[in-house]
Design a protein around this nucleic acid. Structure first.
Length: 470
RNA sequence: GGCCCGUUCGUUUAAUGGUUAGGACGCCAGGUUUUCAUCCUGGUAACAGGGGUUCGAUUCCCCUACGGGCUACCA
């Protein structure tokens, strides 16, 4: 049994988006599931579209998710001579030919074909040039085109889609080597996948139509083709291809928003795949163990941010306070709240309320400074001014007289005692205490707030509330 | 236009030639509760349409519709 080797082969044209990354995840999982290798290959053969920073983004994206690749990064641009060698071999074996057609001619050709409602494509003008014609052109610049078979069918057993059959003759002769000497994707990927001994090519479904070209190339080069697995796309909520107008698409944008890599990994892995059970929360280890290409669905999936939010919250709640603290400090180094002495307690209390890490900065200013609010907010809807004032005053007196229980449970009990001792309802005590401490209509419980803020600050705020109400 | 791919609750998915078509997210209701969040319980909701094949089709086949992809000296 040969070792499974997969690869992630992005072209460096920007920040990798979630669709690409999900393909990378599947390629990674498949390799690791089989105890094989996962390679990173940069498809930088198009010098015009190259965005230098994207190399950094690609590495960062993978690193953030904990997807480590084997071997050093392979840059296709550095393998130009190898690609040229194989292009020349194909020339020698007459499986390819030099094409001298200018871009202008090709453009016109296409225009005419479209006008005549014919399928656009190269007409094969240079396919059968005579020796004399060839000699006459010797100084002209040319590309190398691969001779597609004129009959027969490309057949392969797609690991995701099953038996596939496409006629060879619907493809025109593809350019495999450009005038600038760089190969096109078709040649480069075939050559590199072969030389790197890739066993399974896992890529987007947009490649289905050109797979016949690749299969023909493998045949012409005398190579055994690898297995193919064509992934369905990820769509936006309206069903169209996921794009900027649907919100963030780049993986790193999710990091910036405070999504956890574990959650994203889990979420993306489950988009189009499941293990056949009802399990949905997976650690990476478990995914590696149970992953199988066969269980990838064929239909495109919509990226549902609501479910991601739920999953992210779930992962946050499973973090220890220490872990959560470290992640927040790392993500928001400049945040004021992370400098607070009582950050541990704040996080303990806020943990169940966070959807993304950045939420720690939302509606949490009251931890920094005493809040401002209207006196009316202090009065619970089922209470009145007199009882509220009494509740607040008795709470203050209770804590001034009694020992401060430094636990949420103890503080909660204390507040209960205040209500019971003075024949007040919970709404007369708990609600105003909470508002006095947070200034918010919706917030953590008063006991939690007392515990986080401490005796001194808490009593100060309660006094302030009493004065405000008077 | 040609070729190719796809179609189960709103979303993500499961299963099956005979099931009350299952789970999760969302949503709704209830419980816990001073509020919010968490948590717990329950509910809502789907086999795109039409033909076949069959005793019986969501499941197999064909057609249609809809969605998507490819049709570059981009990947």
């Amino acid at each position: 049994m040969q070792k499974v080797i997969t690869r992630f082969a992005p072209s460096p044209t920007g920040k990798p988006h979630v669709g690409n990354i999900r393909t990378a995840i599947f390629a990674y999982l498949w390799a690791k599931h089989n105890k094989g290798h996962f390679l990173l290959r940069i498809e930088d053969t198009d010098q015009e579209r190259l965005v230098p920073e994207s190399l950094k983004y690609i590495e960062e994206s993978l690193a953030w998710l904990g997807i480590d690749f084997d071997q050093e990064i392979i840059y296709q641009s550095k393998r130009k001579e190898i690609h040229q060698k194989y292009a020349n071999d194909l020339l020698k074996s007459k499986r390819a030919y030099k094409c001298f057609c200018t871009k202008e001619r090709l453009e016109k050709l296409r225009e005419n074909q479209i006008k005549k409602k014919m399928p656009p494509g190269y007409d094969g003008l240079c396919r059968n040039l005579t020796k004399e014609e060839l000699l006459a052109k010797k100084d002209a610049s040319y590309v190398i085109r691969f001779k597609m078979p004129k009959n027969g069918v490309a057949k392969w057993d797609d690991k995701i889609r099953g038996e596939m059959k496409i006629n060879f003759d619907i493809s025109d002769d593809p350019i495999i080597l450009k005038t600038d000497g760089f190969p096109t994707y078709h040649l480069a990927s075939v050559v590199d996948d072969h030389e790197l001994k890739i066993t399974d090519v896992i890529r987007g479904e947009e490649w289905i139509s050109s797979t016949p070209k690749h299969l023909a190339l493998y045949e012409a080069l005398g190579w055994q083709p690898p297995g193919f697995a064509h992934m369905p796309h990820i769509n936006g909520p309206d069903g169209s291809k996921l794009s900027k107008r649907h919100g963030d698409t780049a993986l790193l944008d999710y990091r910036a928003q405070g999504y956890l890599p574990e959650a994203i990994f889990n979420f993306l892995a489950l988009l189009g795949w499941n293990d056949g059970t009802e399990k949905e929360i997976f650690e990476k280890k478990e995914l590696i163990k149970s992953f199988n290409l066969k269980r990838i669905g064929k239909s495109p999936a919509v990226f549902d941010i609501k479910k991601l939010d739920w999953m992210n919250g779930h992962y946050i709640r499973n973090l220890t306070t220490e872990q959560l603290k470290n992640k927040i400090i790392k993500l928001l180094p400049g945040s004021k709240i992370t400098k607070l002495k009582n950050l541990d307690r704040i996080l303990e209390v806020e943990k169940t309320r966070l959807v993304v890490l950045c939420d720690i900065e939302k509606e949490t200013d009251f931890y920094l400074d005493a809040p401002k609010y209207g006196a009316k907010l202090l009065i619970f809807k089922k209470s009145n001014k007199t009882d509220t004032l009494k509740g607040l005053t008795e709470t203050l007196q209770y804590f001034e007289a009694e020992r401060w229980p430094d636990t949420v449970k103890g503080l909660n009990l204390s507040l209960g005692n205040v209500a019971a001792n003075h024949n007040l309802s919970n709404g007369d005590v708990f609600w105003p205490a909470r508002v006095a401490l947070s200034g918010l209509e919706k917030s953590p419980s008063p006991a939690e707030l007392l515990w986080v803020l401490g005796k001194k600050e808490s009593l100060k705020r309660i006094k302030k509330a009493i004065n405000l109400l008077k």
